[in-house]
Simulated assay, not measured.
Amino acid sequence: MELELPDAAATQRLGEDLGRVLPAGTILLLSGDLGSGKTTLIQGLGTGLGIVDPISSPTFTLVNEYLEGRVPLYHLDLYRLDGHEVNDLYLEAYWDEQETAPGIVAIEWAERLDNLPPQAVHLALTYADHGGRNVTLSTQNPSHRALLENLLSHGLLVDEV
């Protein structure tokens, strides 16, 4: 499913819509060039989850945890790392429910993961000709796919391209 995001506010709204409905255990894999809206989308996700703390990209800390929302948000940023360094971090702890409280895991620069988490929702953000952004959402998880299609059909997500 591809959506048009005409501005940063639309990107934020997409995150908010997702934050209101995604269940704990959801893994979001975000990819896109610098400035394509990954952090903006996650800021909206936090708003939709009811997180009041400001959300910033954990480029240097690698992980920010926000535990006060509807479900916890684990925000990871892999920008500064290569595949070998990513593998050494044991990030699986964030989607292994025995290690952390079940929440939503949002990973910026997810293309740097060698082993992608199973059943994740992929969000690929790209620049659009009109100055906005486009996002392609895809998943192999039937329940996530149905949830995304339901959101779109009820107008909760921004318009489809």
Rank of each mutant, 00 (worst) to 15 (best):
I27K: 00
A10Y: 02
E149M: 07
V71N: 10
R80P: 07
A10V: 03
R20N: 05
F60M: 11
G37D: 04
L34Q: 08
N134K: 15
L91H: 09
S36E: 03
S138I: 04
V158P: 09
A101Q: 15
L123P: 00
P54H: 11
T11N: 10
R145V: 05
P23N: 09
L78W: 02
V52L: 14
L152R: 12
V135M: 09
V21W: 04
N150K: 13
R20S: 03
V105D: 02
N150Q: 14
A9L: 14
N134V: 12
M1T: 10
Y94E: 05
N141Y: 06
V52E: 15
D88L: 14
V161L: 13
A120G: 10
L41T: 00
L14H: 03
G15I: 00
S138N: 15
A24Q: 09
L137M: 15
V135A: 15
D159L: 04
A9N: 10
G69I: 02
N87M: 10
V71E: 11
L78F: 04
L14Y: 03
Q43W: 01
L29C: 08
P6V: 05
T59G: 08
G25H: 08
G131P: 08
Y66A: 12
P118D: 15
G69W: 05
L116Y: 13
D33M: 08
T11W: 10
P23T: 05
L113H: 00
S138D: 14
S57P: 04
N141D: 15
L91I: 09
L34D: 07
L157W: 01
L156E: 10
G19Q: 06
L76F: 05
P54W: 09
A124L: 08
T40D: 06
I51C: 14
L123M: 15
A8Q: 13
R133Y: 12
H122K: 04
V63Y: 12
E111Q: 14
P23S: 14
E160C: 12
E65N: 05
I104P: 01
L116W: 13
A128N: 12
R112E: 13
E68Y: 06
P23A: 14
P118Q: 13
A128H: 12
Q119K: 13
P58H: 07
H84R: 15
N87A: 15
S56T: 11
P72D: 09
G48L: 02
V52S: 14
R13T: 01
N87Q: 14
P58Y: 09
G25Y: 07
L41D: 00
G50I: 02
T59L: 05
A106M: 07
A101I: 08
L116D: 08
L41K: 00
T47E: 06
I104Y: 01
H75G: 02
V71Y: 12
L3D: 08
L34R: 10
N64L: 03
W109P: 02
A8L: 11
A93I: 09
Y66M: 05
E2L: 04
N115K: 14
P102T: 05
D88N: 12
N64T: 03
L29A: 07
